[in-house]
Design a protein around this nucleic acid. Structure first.
Lengths: 338, 338
DNA sequence: CTGTTAGCGCTTTCAG
DNA sequence: CTGAAAGCGCTAACAG
């Protein structure tokens, strides 16, 4: 198709291998010849064929990002991290290929096959996949360097990256306790996600340490959606009217709930305090501004790239979790002010 | 490294080309041999090397997605579209590689070089890049099939995909007019983006058709951020207190403004009606639920893939714009109810 | 139906 | 310092 190393060689009446040397390495070529080669390469519009180079070198510099096909509305915040992830990988000379996987039609071995057919040097598994999905074990047991999100499938060549979920939730609920709340509800997401179980654990530990008896009637499991959060909150408050605060394990449910409750004349935070989780960028401008647990999606992008590079360099898998920080805003206020 | 077509051939004492044939095409191989080949291939854990195949076929099946490095907070909604885009492209047998471009350090010819070195069959340019950025003309003038977002750089092999921005804005402002508003402010984003100019045009046309004199004092240019929207709205209402409604050219600014105004005791929609633009998923649960112009990011992902495939099949570039639909919620109400 | 041969574009010995 | 030759893994004629 386009101009190759041979064309340049022919044009200059020299050998392709000389051209190759001149264009890449720094050693072993006469300065004069190199200059000429460089110049005609430019003139002829030569662009190296990366694929061919990969083939002969047996090295692709390619990293795969596996994303699960997910239903609308349950979107993970991962895509905030993608640009930074891609950029950082670029700093290490890696390129990124996106691989979609349908969790439902996933076939055994598919992961490795996808990796090997593209000659991936590493992979990043973003999900979402439920915690027992086959792909997790395939990823974590494989010899291919990989970084998985959230689910703690650490392997010898597999690092897990995520957040201190339990701690984040603990901080959130503890904040409510400090504000004087004692009857604190929980609206959780899918229990088959690690993050949900951990957030639940954090909720529970905060109550325990405060000497408050855990009541399962104060718990609802929902679907991470706005409508789901609304429904769960409504039902929770109807059944357990003494509840004065609710911790939602994501912001979307929290907002859905606040919106719905206010429609019914239940005011947040006056009648009930609310804390969310995620730190969606919009929370700051929500009405009321949402108290939430802030994740750092951008930083996660950078750290993911770094973790993968470490693995590729020969490191061994580990668990990397990042601090989540409670952002105190107006949706949670002292109990006494009711 | 791993098992190749040769290894299988050797194991079966046959020729590599026979193996190749058996594994791909459907014609010209004895059923018995094919079966044996298939089986040992499986047993040996053979996975085809796509790179090698590409090289010999001179065909990569690779599509590049160019994203601009952007500042935090000005994030485009594009990443909602990426999964669907990737999936749809997959249906056509294409794979997707992500290419980050720093708009500031961009060098002439970089676009083509990136495309050619990877042997891309097509590209999708998501931006954001300002409307006069060099990359646009390089993309639209190149012979490589490409789809660009928003900015109307149509070329013979370059399709532009986007939304009927002007119409969307017109509908939004018209809605306010129908509600009885006459003094309608506009808070716009960066004027060097096509979408902003168009949304402005829609605002203006709606006023014109209603016979309302356009007043530049009712216009503010901001930065698409929540804080920016807040500042612009505050200033606008201070200088022009007769304004009863504001159209924001994105939801984030609208929400930032609503939040800030309410802090100052100015209620939305009671004191001032607000319409946004984008249809962020959170708008439905905002308080008040945000009236906005809904973009269909997911559909755009599908359409983009289709448009690119059409181009790759030999089609010529065109402009594809999709309907944006006004979603009437509670942030804009009749003037009389004030 | 199957083997032989050549070659995609590039790098890398190995001579010279 | 440069040329010649071989080969990465695969496919595509062309014979047989």
């Amino acid at each position: 198709m386009s101009v190759s190393i041979k064309d340049i060689a022919k044009a200059l009446n020299i050998n392709p291998s000389t051209v190759s040397r001149a264009l890449q390495g720094v050693y072993g070529v006469n300065e004069e010849t190199r200059r000429k080669i460089r110049q005609t390469a430019k003139e002829m519009g030569y662009v190296p064929n990366i694929g061919a180079r990969e083939l002969v070198k047996g090295k692709t510099n390619l990293v795969g990002i596996f994303i699960g096909i997910y239903e609308k509305g349950v979107r993970p915040p991962f895509f905030e991290t993608l640009p930074l992830l891609n950029q950082t990988l670029g700093l290490y000379g890696k390129e990124t290929i996106i691989l979609s996987v349908d969790p439902l039609t996933y076939k055994k071995g598919q992961y490795m096959e996808m990796c090997r057919s593209r000659g991936l040097e590493g992979s990043i598994v973003m999900g979402p996949f439920d915690d027992k999905h086959l792909i997790w074990s395939e990823v974590s047991n494989s010899q291919l360097p990989s970084v998985v999100f959230d689910e703690p499938y650490v392997g010898r060549r597999c690092t897990c990256i995520g957040t201190f979920e339990e701690q984040g939730a603990y901080d959130a609920v503890n904040h409510l306790l400090e504000l004087g709340h004692r009857k604190i509800g929980l609206v959780n997401g899918f229990p088959d996600l690690y993050v949900c179980r951990e957030r639940f654990a954090g909720y529970r530990r905060a109550l325990d340490e405060a000497g408050i008896l855990f009541k399962s009637a104060f718990i609802r499991e929902s679907d991470f959606s706005g409508a789901g959060g609304a429904g769960a909150a409504r039902e929770l408050l109807k059944r357990e009217p003494e509840i004065t605060a609710i911790f939602f394990t994501n912001d979307l449910m929290a907002m859905g709930a606040i919106s719905a409750l206010q429609t019914e004349g239940i005011s947040v935070p006056r009648d009930v305090s609310v804390v969310g989780f995620d730190g969606l960028f919009i929370g700051e401008f929500y009405n009321p501004p949402l108290t939430t647990v802030q994740l750092n999606d951008q930083l996660i992008g950078i750290r993911t790239a770094e973790a993968l590079m470490e693995l590729i360099a020969g490191g061994t898998g580990k668990e990397v979790r990042m601090e989540a920080s409670l952002v105190r805003r107006a949706s949670a206020i002292p109990l006494s002010s009711t």
